[in-house]
Design a protein around this nucleic acid. Structure first.
Lengths: 343, 343
DNA sequence: AATCTTTTCGGGAACGTTGCCATTAATGTA
DNA sequence: TACATTAATGGCAACGTTCCCGAAAAGATT
């Protein structure tokens, strides 16, 4: 890949690089004729300023880093879609990293992030992450960071989440109102903020309706299918098994559905199932899955906007960081109600 | 974000930058004591070489660009997962662009790609792209490019696809062997290589079994739900409607399923449905979806490996480019056979 | 006519790093 | 003792760009 430089133009037109540079930027202190000839030459030979040289000079890369647990997860790919959208309009590049739910990998990613001199970082924590020193360090050094979805209290910066408490509360209450008595909750990694919030919502709904909490109905579970099967089997070995499961994530809901099918437990007759998800196919599952929808795309957009806000006002110091809660929506389908078969 | 530089170390230790540079690289012509003190200082203040300065000097960015139609499409996010995996091990960054199935956007993306000086490009063409001059130009200028999934004959470089013909042939033949007589095929954008190959496989299977081709059963369709509904309605306005639909993509299959449900057409009783997809949830749909699985992750990995091969041997000129066909697999589920309900 | 402004441009440093070419001092060789 | 060799380090240019500063020429102001 050969690229024409400002020097080449200067040499060809018998000018200095300074003059060419100014002509290209349309400076007023350049003779219109000179300007025109420079422009024409640049156009003709398809001059494109070297962003790397610019980066070196200005000490910024015009790129942002994104660390997600797994890109191949509809929630995150939708969020990245939103991020890319905003970044594109701002003329920034999006550089992707995956933590694969591993703390070590996340730490290594943050090292790469700094070494690569990205201008800002968007991150959703891995399921294993309990210590966020690696992010604190970056933030203390002045790197703009926005946390989304899986956040941490220990970092003081902008955060974007969906209203996990409310969503969880509404989902649980929906199960209660449709007559379910023993409602289990399967949460994801207990370290995650989203898990904690959703458990709180679940407990709050039970409390409101004076349903005693049964610890044996509250389970934490990894995404593996075996893990899910194990948990389901645990729940059903209970002397009075649950008549509803409220699941804290898309993957878990799918795993439950498939396990319940395998165990020949009918949904929603034997047990109601409701997910916390944004899967487009949720409506097409058998049975169609009731769920609490999260605005993944909007979350990506909002996070990116906030990050650019931080990047562009990085000097104006006295910041007040905020945590933005995005709406959730309960969508009732067949997995939680025993009515007809078509909506 | 303040970063310590080689100059800082030099100043602090009363050395020249050259000495520090060589000490850091472990050069033999540096006094072991000096080397040690430099190393210690660098360690202590967390020196990280500035990759931007390196890039400027070496005229390479250690990053690769990836252009996909839509990141929020399980096939592509899985592929990107594979790409990121390989790139991570090679120490490269992955920079993501989306064409949103738009030719204009794809062209703009390629401009960004060049202006950003990525070391290589992985691309899957947009559905609107018929002219690939923008890619040819880049390739002629020496940018290593690997095409995957949605490829073009007009660019001579490495390509990675799944065996669309075979997958399509097997899918169609499966429908024939299970007694279907009027098999429709709904393809994606007619410009796409994947569409052409899959149509060929479909036609070949019909030919092998002496089934005459009915042009009215071969449809091209966009991903929009309205488009799909329109096509389905067209098919069923036929005097003898199809008894099977072989669909050329995951999204199309989902759209069909939902439309057929809405129209109260029973799958698989009234009509068999089979997709070309890699959706993890295909098994959980109602009915579970028969499909031809594509190895998206492997495709991403393979493409990335080939790209790095090109990048690293960019000088060794006489290249022989190849097109790699990856395996596909027919998975028969309930949407195409009328047997029992559980597998 | 002498001075002051503009206008238009060139020179050079700087961003962080590497690599070539000195340079110095110490050591080895005759 | 004189010269060649080696070890250890410094100086400087270069990558592509911008920006500050200066300079020459032309024009404007007394």
């Amino acid at each position: 890949m050969e690229h024409i430089t400002i020097k080449d133009i200067a040499k060809a037109l018998n000018l200095s690089t300074s003059t060419v540079s100014r002509a290209l930027r349309g400076s007023h202190e350049i003779n219109p004729d000179t300007k025109r000839s420079v422009m024409e030459y640049a156009e003709k030979f398809n001059y494109q300023p070297n962003p790397i040289a610019l980066s070196l000079k200005e000490n910024k890369s015009r790129s942002i880093g994104v660390i997600v647990p797994e890109i191949d997860n509809p929630f995150f790919s939708q969020a990245i879609n939103g991020i890319e959208d905003i970044a594109y309009n701002k003329g920034y590049q999006v550089v992707i990293f995956q933590s694969h739910e591993s703390y070590e990998r996340e730490v290594i990613n943050t090292q790469h992030i700094t070494s690569r001199r990205v201008d800002g970082l968007l991150i959703s924590l891995s399921g294993q992450t309990t210590n966020v020193e690696h992010l604190k360090n970056l933030h203390d050094k002045g790197l703009p960071i926005v946390l989304f979805d899986r956040i941490s209290d220990e970092i003081d910066t902008h955060k974007v989440i969906s209203d996990n408490f409310e969503g969880s509360f509404n989902g649980t209450e929906h199960l209660i109102k449709t007559g379910r008595k023993r409602i289990a909750h399967i949460a994801a990694s207990p370290h995650l903020s989203i898990s904690k919030e959703r458990v709180k919502g679940y407990l709050a709904a039970l409390a409101k309706h004076n349903i005693p909490v049964d610890e044996s109905l509250l389970k934490y579970c990894n995404y593996g299918l075996q893990d899910i099967e194990f948990v389901i089997d645990q729940l059903f070995s209970n002397e009075t098994p649950p008549d509803a499961i409220f699941t804290a994530s898309d993957r878990l809901a799918l795993g439950c559905l498939s396990t319940l099918k395998k165990r020949n437990i009918k949904v929603p007759e034997d047990i109601a199932l409701i997910g916390f998800t944004n899967l487009k196919v949720a409506a097409l599952l058998a049975p169609s899955l009731s769920t609490i929808v999260q605005p993944a795309l909007d979350m990506g957009k909002r996070s990116a906007e906030l990050l650019f806000d931080l990047i562009e006002n990085t000097s104006k110091l006295p910041k007040s960081y905020r945590t933005f809660k995005l709406y959730t929506e309960l969508i009732v389908r067949n997995s939680s109600v025993m009515k007809s078969d078509e909506e």
